[in-house]
Design a protein around this nucleic acid. Structure first.
Lengths: 228, 228
DNA sequence: GATCTTCAACCTGTCATACCATTACGCTCG
DNA sequence: CGAGCGTAATGGTATGACAGGTTGAAGATC
């Protein structure tokens, strides 16, 4: 049953020495040729092990220089999640499920924001809302729209939320066929954004959830209108 | 700036031919040596390309046999998420953020369940609750606890929820130091489970959310009690 | 004729070696 | 003491080789 491949053994060993703290961020790993000797493996196996660690974000490798221990960034997390999202989008019903998941996430973020936002956070959301309402063209409307949602996520104090939320926004904006009636949508969206903001500012959890849910339902509706 | 490595090019090309449907699930890919010729690359590069596709779950590769196109499973999604979770758990404040995220997720799932659960789904949740209350020892209590939460996720009709929710439960159960006062917790947990169930069955969205939130806060509290 | 066995071709996993472009580093030169 | 350069080391890629597993079909068995 020992189907364990060699690179898995090496990768696991290296990962352990990294997460256990024996190697800290920025430290230099031994060279590939060193590792060959140390693990009594060929270079292929060593390289595959380093490869998987690199794709996990634990290593940064540049040509000519030894690999260094890296701290996985939020961007990399997005990258991983992005792969998952692509599977969903390619599957029947995938877009609907992704919209569902976004609804779950954003409503939850709004809930937590309404519970925990302090004065500073509320002010930042207000600013994002104002910027969105002042957006001149369609592109900047989209950008400030995403920023508005991100400002709410920021209010929760959990760093990953911003990354995940932004990713959701981008995936679905990417999917969206050009929304012909963007003009009609904008006024509606702004009104709904304002309702979300005011509920959060007031600390009214239920109203905030409902407002965000209504907002996302509207967005979804406009999306499907563009689909035959 | 063209730092694109060779395997990326190959991987992208192959991924396109897969998701575009030119290769369907179960189809056999060309052999590595075929791909070498086709892309005018060495075997190293071809192997690295296949490697990343395999880790994305688009390929299933067994030694000796040519790679076949596979359909990414929910398990693989968990695998990816698991990697992300491990980073969180290794980081200061990571457990708290993960608990936060779980709260967001489970409360959202409960909300959607209260909105959409049909009679069948309610019945399944009731059964899961009964099984949990009848659990004899600690291990089976944990198992049926997870199953109860999963049954709620199932009621939402979005397949990924079950997988993500189960993963959350397992990560946090795994982290939990042995809860000495499990006896005291069980009665409390059962009462809270029942409250969640009844709110869902009644379709009372707000009550369901609140009940689940209270439940998870209790769980978190017990977790931190075990930490000096 | 159907099913089991065997076997040869093929494929991947791994190793070894070689070559190039890039980086790191010590040395020389100012 | 600092700047510039050249060399050694390193990763990225290509190629060849061999061991062990898989596959599919020919052959054996019933």
């Amino acid at each position: 049953m020992g189907k364990r491949r060699k690179y898995e053994e090496i990768a696991e060993h290296l990962e352990l020495t990294i997460v256990s703290g024996r190697l800290k961020t920025g430290d230099r790993l031994p060279s590939e040729r060193d590792l060959m000797d140390r693990f009594e493996a060929g270079r292929s196996s060593v390289r595959e092990a380093l490869f998987v660690l690199q794709r996990k974000g634990l290593l940064s490798a540049n040509a000519g220089a030894v690999a260094r221990v890296a701290e996985p960034t939020a961007d990399l997390m997005i990258e991983e999640l992005s792969g998952i999202a692509r599977l969903f989008l390619a599957r029947p019903d995938g877009v609907r499920e992704l919209q569902d998941a976004r609804m779950l996430f954003e409503v939850g973020v709004t809930r937590q924001a309404a519970q925990r936002a302090d004065a500073d956070a509320v002010e930042r959301i207000r600013a994002a809302l104002a910027a969105n309402e002042a957006a001149a063209d369609g592109d900047s409307f989209v950008a400030t729209d995403i920023a508005f949602h991100a400002s709410i996520a920021e209010a929760c104090g959990t760093r990953a939320y911003v990354a995940v939320g932004t990713a959701f926004s981008e995936w679905l904006h990417m999917q969206r066929t050009v929304s012909a009636d963007a003009g009609a949508t904008r006024a509606e969206a702004s009104a709904q954004h304002r309702a979300v903001f005011e509920a959060i500012a007031a600390g009214d959890v239920v109203a905030a959830e409902d407002a965000m849910e209504r907002h996302l339902k509207t967005v979804s509706t406009y999306y499907w209108k563009g689909i035959p």
